[in-house]
């Protein structure tokens, strides 16, 4: 019993990180129609910015956290201005390749600036635990879950209540009409990218807090993409649910399936593949993800 609670709890905290990353995918895709393969790299850069301030310059962690958030926003906006302003209306695949290229450029620059080593990001929660009965909860995981929930609520309120959020939804629905209604679609796109950069930076910092800061941490982006697809690429609540499902499934697979031997097949560490297997199974049943809506197509 304790074990399953611990597994679920850890799965939830990993899931919150996936959900944040997936949220970034959805925000950018919904508003601009670009699938950002560099989302993981944006998260990595966010974590490195936080590391530079918190660990290298000894700025208090909370300030470093907010500096990294601003860094994420600026990075997102700059990426849009430099790479995607002129790419509106280009085929899906060209934009995907631009983000793939962007990912390697970001990794290369981060490697030049911060080096290829592994670094430790010390936050107030690092290595601290709370014991409840017989179960151990890491403080880092608790803070990850709480902050993510707060962020999700803010994002959902933003899209349902604020003028900017509603105009973003409008221009996502039909950019041409939105433009005619007086909405500045280019500005909306930039805001979407900035928000995408922000949630990526948050995810990156939590990920770094649970482990370390390094270039290869960006690989988590691919699994977050699976989470976004699982939930339905255009749904914010779908991204959150998708992230949590993948986090929990991974935890369960690592605990109950990894290391098994099936004849001449070694199960090994099945955790990473489990995310994709779940994704495929869900797509078989619901081809547009859990919350995705089938589009009515006109001929």
């Amino acid at each position: 019993m304790e074990k399953i609670i611990e597994i679920l709890f850890n799965g939830l905290s990993m899931g919150a990180i996936y959900a944040l990353m997936a949220l970034g995918f959805v925000l950018i895709f919904k508003s601009t129609g670009v699938i950002n393969f560099a989302q993981g790299e944006l998260a990595m850069v966010g974590a490195f910015i936080c590391y530079s301030f918190a660990t290298m310059m000894n700025v208090p962690y909370i300030y470093a956290f907010f500096i990294a958030l601003i860094g994420g926003i600026i990075l997102g906006a700059v990426v849009y201005q430099v790479f995607f302003r002129t790419m509106v209306g280009e085929p899906l695949f060209s934009t995907i390749m631009v983000t793939v290229g962007l990912a390697s450029i970001l990794t290369c620059l981060a490697g030049l600036i911060w080096g290829h080593d592994v670094y430790s990001l010390n936050s107030p929660f690092t290595d601290k635990v709370i014991h409840l009965d017989k179960i151990t909860f890491a403080q880092g995981s608790i803070s990850t879950i709480i902050v993510s929930v707060v962020l999700f609520v803010i994002v959902i309120l933003f899209f349902n209540r604020s003028l900017l959020g509603i105009s973003m939804r409008g221009s996502a629905e039909d950019p041409d009409t939105a433009g005619l209604m007086g909405i500045n679609v280019k500005k909306i796109h930039m805001v979407a990218w900035a928000l995408g950069g922000l949630v990526a930076a948050v995810a990156g910092m939590f990920l770094a807090e649970q482990s370390f800061v390094r270039l290869s941490m960006s690989h988590v982006g691919i699994k977050a993409m699976a989470a976004a697809i699982l939930g339905g690429m255009e749904s914010i609540s779908g991204a959150i649910l998708g992230g949590i499902i993948i986090g929990v499934v991974e935890g369960l697979a690592a605990n109950y399936l990894s290391g098994m031997e099936l004849g001449n097949f070694h199960m090994g560490d099945i955790k990473d593949v489990a995310a994709f297997v779940i994704m495929i199974i869900v797509l078989m049943i619901r081809p547009y993800g859990i919350f995705g809506k089938e589009k009515v197509e006109r001929v």
Binding site: I7, F212, D272
Partner: peptide, 18 residues
């Protein structure tokens, strides 16, 4: 006891629990 992990794993809770 033995527990495998894939390169890039960051969460070792299951392995250490085992």
């Amino acid at each position: 006891a033995q527990a495998p992990y894939k390169t890039g794993t960051i969460d070792f809770t299951p392995h250490m629990n085992a």
